[in-house]
């Protein structure tokens, strides 16, 4: 059996889910024996999301145009997409800006009203991605195959989700150990 093509993606989130991923410690070594890490902020240097990915952990919500573009590419090129952590599943903390209204009011609040000096909107087309009006959970934008809540999901939960996939089975996402939010 060939190795599983494995990716992790970091969208609008704090990278805490990736830190928790690294907390799997020695199991990472076992994982590495079964997978090729083809794209990941913590496990690969590739700049472009490749074709034919088997499993992808997506951390973070969809908050800007870059996130949107990447998640659509990920969906097209991935067999099993896992919403990884509360930001991906619910928009969580990044989503709290939604209560302020659209992008304009968020930027106004952040860069004009609360700024001490240099009150101006960030504007660097092509470098600073534009904000979406509303931060969205991943499954509001593209279909998702597995939901793994948690802020962050504990290392054991990540392991319990990935281990069956390596054997070609779907994990059972049930019970406090697997689906508790927060």
């Amino acid at each position: 059996m060939g190795k599983v093509k494995f990716a992790t993606v970091w969208l609008a989130g704090c990278a805490g889910c990736h830190m928790s991923f690294l907390d799997m410690d020695e199991w990472l070594i076992e994982l590495a024996q079964h997978v090729d890490v083809v794209y990941s902020p913590v496990g690969s240097d590739l700049k472009h999301y490749p074709d034919g990915v088997d499993v992808c952990l997506v951390e973070g919500a969809i908050a800007n145009v870059d996130n949107l573009e990447l998640i659509q590419e990920v969906r097209q090129k991935t067999k099993i997409l896992i919403s990884f952590g509360d930001c991906a599943v619910t928009a969580n903390v990044p989503g709290m800006r939604n209560m302020l209204g659209g992008a304009e009011s968020v930027l106004t609040r952040g860069y004009l009203e609360l700024a001490d000096a240099g009150k101006q909107f960030p504007n660097e087309p092509g470098i600073v991605p534009e904000l979406l009006d509303q931060v969205q959970s991943v499954h509001n934008v593209v279909p998702v195959d597995i939901f793994m809540p948690g802020c962050p999901p504990p290392a054991d939960r990540i392991k319990a989700t990935l281990a069956p996939l390596l054997k070609g089975e779907m994990p059972v996402m049930e019970g406090r150990e697997m689906i508790k939010f927060g």
């Binding site: 969906r75 659209g102 930027l107 534009e130 904000l131 509303q134 279909p143």
Partner: peptide, 13 residues
């Protein structure tokens, strides 16, 4: 998939 309904809508700074 489900295409997002609101595309980018950043303020013109």
């Amino acid at each position: 998939g489900n295409k997002i309904e609101a595309t980018a809508n950043a303020p013109s700074a």
